[in-house]
């Protein structure tokens, strides 16, 4: 009756996998280009607040005209009481002896200046133009932000950026 006879003996044809490396390479190149490596993992807990109409910091990062500092509660809760209001600063680790080192706001000046000095002469821009990006936890008290601003004002680093999670596209 049926016109289509099933041939039970025939096994499935094997798939040609010779183009697999090409596909994988394509993916590989995409991720290689899209990757920006993180400076370091902060040892303070930071949950960023949300906001809209922000500026993308990536171009500044590529020209290394930006320093990041994190403000949050230390991951190791036992250390919290060493810091003002329980919130510690984590400074990105270029001119810093120990990655686990956490600071109060009074360390900002030397950190900023050290970072500034350690840059090669050809890449150096005026310190006024080096942005300081503050990544603060949403529950951090505002007074600490103003403490940071005051330290920066003293060394004439007059550009700050308040980091948030951008939800414009949601």
């Amino acid at each position: 009756m049926s016109k289509f006879k099933k041939d039970k003996k025939k096994s499935a044809p094997s798939v040609n996998t010779s183009s697999l490396p090409d596909i994988v390479f394509m993916l590989l190149f995409f991720f290689m280009v899209a990757t920006t490596s993180k400076e370091s993992d902060p040892t303070v807990k930071v949950v960023q607040p949300e906001g809209i109409r922000t500026t993308d910091m990536t171009p500044f990062k590529q020209r290394s005209e930006i320093d990041f500092l994190y403000l949050g509660k230390p991951r190791n809760a036992a250390r919290a009481d060493q810091f003002k209001l329980g919130y510690a600063l984590f400074l990105d680790n270029v001119a810093q002896p120990d990655v686990n080192e956490l600071y109060n706001t009074n360390a900002i000046k030397s950190w900023k200046l050290d970072k500034f000095e350690s840059k090669p002469e050809t890449m150096k821009k005026d310190i006024v133009d080096v942005i300081t990006c503050i990544k603060a936890d949403e529950n951090a008290p505002s007074v600490l932000i103003f403490d940071i601003r005051k330290e920066l004002q003293d060394i004439d680093a007059l550009k700050v950026a308040y980091a948030v999670r951008d939800n414009s596209n949601l």
């Binding site: 994988v24 004002q153 700050v160 980091a163």
Partner: peptide, 25 residues
Amino acid sequence: LLLIFFLVTTTMDRDKAWIRNIPKK
């Protein structure tokens, strides 16, 4: 192997912020 390495190290979220000026002393 390389692909997996870059997959793991990629962070897609960009740093977004508002730039503000501090008044000069």
